[in-house]
Design a binder for these strands. Structure first.
Lengths: 341, 341
DNA sequence: CCAAGTTATGACAGCGCTGTCAATATCGTT
DNA sequence: AACGATATTGACAGCGCTGTCATAACTTGG
C-alpha cells in the first residue's frame, strides 16, 4: 500500500502512468483505450502509443470494480472425462471469445455439495453470467441463483424447470425415441446397460424415457445392468460381457447409457464373434464420431453438444446487451440409424 | 456510483453491511470471515451469522485489488476437441480447486496470433499464475510472459526451453521410442499417417523422433501421409485406406499421429479384412482407453495427461507459497505393447 | 494494585479504474 | 464579432475490500 508518489519499483504499469506518458489525464487515457467515447484522434494515438511503449495491460479487476461489466462467465460442468462436456465447453469458449469474454471453470464431479460450493466461489468473482449443467436440482443452489441476479443458462437438458434460461433437449424424449425406433425394427426383448446412474441424472432420464417408450408398446425392460464408475469404452465392453454371461435368455437389443459404453459393447461382440445386429442389436447415445467410424456404424442418437455450448454463451451475451432471448431453446437430437440395430 | 448512505436499493450485500449487522467494524468482519488473524471467537460467530443471514458473497475483485493474490489461474490450451487437453484441464482444475483456485480458460486453436491475444486478455485479470500448452515459440508471447512476473508452466512438452517451468515429456523421445520398439519387433518398411501437422508441433516432434529412431537403425520412412484437419477416428480410417490404396508395396507397420487416428486405422483393417499385425501392424500414441478396449488392443505410448495438468497446477501453487519447485518436471511416457504391432 | 505484555478492534488510506458532471476549446452562423 | 452548439478534456468521488499502524481491552506477575 505505498506507491503514490514517484516511480514504483517495478510494478506493472498503470493507467495513470500511461496517461502521464501521453500527457493527458487518466480518464482521457481510459477513454482513448476503450474506444467509443469522444476523444480526438491525435489524442487517442498518443495514448495508444504510450500504452504500447509501456507494455500496458489494463487491470480488469479495477475496471470491473469501478463500474464495468465483468466479461467473465462462470461455467460449472459435472465432468471433463466425458468428451460430451468438453464439447459444450468448446462451444461456449468459442462464442465467448468473440466478445472478449472468458469462462471461469468449475467441475462438480456430479456432486451437489461441490456444485454449491463452486457456485459460491465463482460468484465471488462477480461474473457477468453463469452457465451450468446442473447436477442436482438442489434448493440451495436455486436460491443462490435467484439472488445472484445474473443471466443463468442451464445446458444439456430442458426437462426440469430452469431457474432462468435453458438450452438442450429432453433426455426423456430421446430415450423414448430410441425405444420406438428399436420397436419399429422388430425388437421386443430389450435390455439396458448403464454407468453410475445415481449421479448422472440425465442418463437416468434417458433410461426412464426408454422405459416409457417400451410401455407405449406394452413392453418392458427384460434386463438392466448398472455398473459403477464413469462411463467408458472398457466399462461398456465389460457390461455387455457380464450381461450376456449371466443369462441364457439373451435380449434381442441392448440400449447403452451412451456411445462410449455402446462402442465397448460392439468391441465385445467383435471379440466374442457375435454378428451385429443379427445375434444381438446395440444402440448408444450421443452420436460420437467414433461410433460412426466403426466397421458397423453404431445406431445412436446424435446430440449437438458444441452447439448447445455456443447457444448458451450467445444467450448470456444477448441478455447482457439488454435483449430478452427465449427462456427455453431446443437443440434437437436426431436418431442416427446405423448397422448395429 | 451512488450508495454511500442508507440502504442501497437491491445490490448484493457488501462487507460493510455484514459488519453493520454484526455490530463490528468492516475490517474486523473481514478478518473474521477470512479466518486466521486474531478475532475473538464470539465476534467471529456474530460475523459469520450475519454473513449467512444476508447471504453475503465476498467480492474477490475488490479483495484482490486491495492486496490479495488473485486465486485465478489463466489456462491457454490449443484445443478441446482432443480429449488429451480435456484431460490436462481436468487434472489442473482438480488440483486448483483444492486450494480454492479456478482456471480462466482460453483456446488458441493452434493459432499463434490468437494465443498472443488470449494471453494479453487473460493477463488483464491479473491471474496468480499461467498454464499453457504453447502453440508457437513466438517471441512476442515470450516477452509478455517475461514481463508478467508470474509463475508460468508450459505443459505437455519438455523439448523447447521453457520461459519458466515445464511439465511433460519429450515428444521427440516418444517418437523415437516407438521406432525402436517397432524395429525390435522386426518391422522394416514403415509409414506414418498424421493429421494437420503444420499446427500441431508436438505431433511433428513425434514424427521427427520417429524418423530419428529409424535413422538409428539405418532405415527411413517408406511413406508419409498427412491429412488436413484435426485428428479423429474417421480421419485415421480414411488415412489408412488411402495409404494402402495408393501403393502396391505396403508398409509392414504404420505409426499414427495419435490413438484416435490409429483406432481409425484398426477399423479400416477390420472392414477390409486385414489381420493385425500379420497383414499390417499399427501403432498409435496417447494410450487412450478406447485403444485398449479394442478386440486387438492397440500398441501405443501412454502419456499421463491428467497428471501433467495436476502437477502443473501444483507447481503454480507451490511457487505461490514461496517454494522453488524444479523448472522441468518429467512425467514419463510408457510404451504399451498391444496386439496390433 | 500497577507495569509490561498480549489480544482484539478500529481508523485510515489506497488498490486501479470508470461514471458523472462541469469546464474548456472549437466551430459555424447571423 | 458575439452567440449558442458541439467536441474534447478534466476533477472528483467511489467501487468493495485489505494492509498498516494505532488504540483499547484484557492478562499476568511481583
Amino acid at each position: 500500500m505505498n506507491q503514490n508518489t514517484s516511480d514504483p519499483p517495478s510494478r506493472r504499469p498503470t493507467l495513470s502512468q500511461v496517461a502521464k506518458a501521453a500527457g493527458v489525464s487518466e480518464i482521457t487515457a481510459s477513454r482513448a483505450l476503450r474506444g467509443g467515447s469522444a476523444v480526438a484522434k491525435t489524442t487517442r494515438q498518443k495514448v495508444e502509443r504510450a500504452a504500447q511503449a509501456l507494455n500496458y495491460v489494463p487491470n480488469r479487476l479495477a475496471g470491473t470494480l469501478a463500474g464495468g461489466a465483468s466479461r467473465q462467465v462462470a461455467v460449472i460442468l459435472p465432468s471433463l472425462s466425458n468428451i460430451v462436456f468438453a464439447d459444450v465447453l468448446k462451444g461456449l469458449e468459442n462464442r465467448l471469445e468473440d466478445d472478449g469474454y472468458h469462462p471461469i471453470l468449475g467441475i462438480s464431479h456430479y456432486d451437489a455439495t461441490r456444485e454449491e460450493h463452486l457456485l459460491h466461489d465463482l460468484l465471488s468473482w462477480r461474473p457477468a453470467g453463469l452457465v451450468l449443467a446442473p447436477t442436482s436440482g438442489s434448493a440451495a443452489t436455486r436460491a443462490l441463483l435467484q439472488a445472484a441476479e445474473l443471466p443463468v443458462v442451464e445446458v444439456m437438458d430442458t426437462d426440469p424447470d430452469a431457474a432462468d434460461m435453458a438450452v438442450g433437449f429432453s433426455h426423456r424424449a430421446a430415450g423414448r425415441a430410441m425405444a420406438h425406433y428399436l420397436i419399429g425394427r422388430g425388437y421386443r426383448r430389450m435390455a439396458y446397460i448403464g454407468h453410475d446412474i445415481a449421479t448422472d441424472f440425465r442418463a437416468l432420464a434417458r433410461l426412464d424415457g426408454f422405459k416409457d417408450g417400451l410401455t407405449d408398446a406394452g413392453l418392458s425392460l427384460s434386463d438392466t445392468l448398472i455398473l459403477d464408475g464413469p462411463s467408458s469404452v472398457p466399462l461398456g465392453r465389460e457390461g455387455l460381457a457380464r450381461l450376456l454371461d449371466r443369462t441364457t435368455q439373451w435380449p434381442e437389443a441392448v440400449f447403452f447409457s451412451n456411445d462410449d459404453m455402446a462402442v465397448g459393447g460392439v468391441f465385445h461382440c467383435q471379440t466374442a464373434g457375435l454378428s451385429l445386429p443379427h445375434d444381438i442389436a446395440l444402440a448408444g447415445f450421443n452420436g460420437l464420431s467414433i461410433g460412426q467410424a466403426l466397421p458397423t456404424p453404431l445406431t445412436t442418437i446424435a446430440s449437438n453438444r458444441e452447439r448447445i455450448g455456443f447457444v448458451a454463451a450467445d444467450l448470456i451475451l444477448r441478455r447482457l446487451k439488454g435483449e430478452r432471448p427465449p427462456r427455453i431453446t431446443q437443440i434437437d437430437f436426431r436418431l442416427v440409424p446405423g448397422s448395429t440395430a
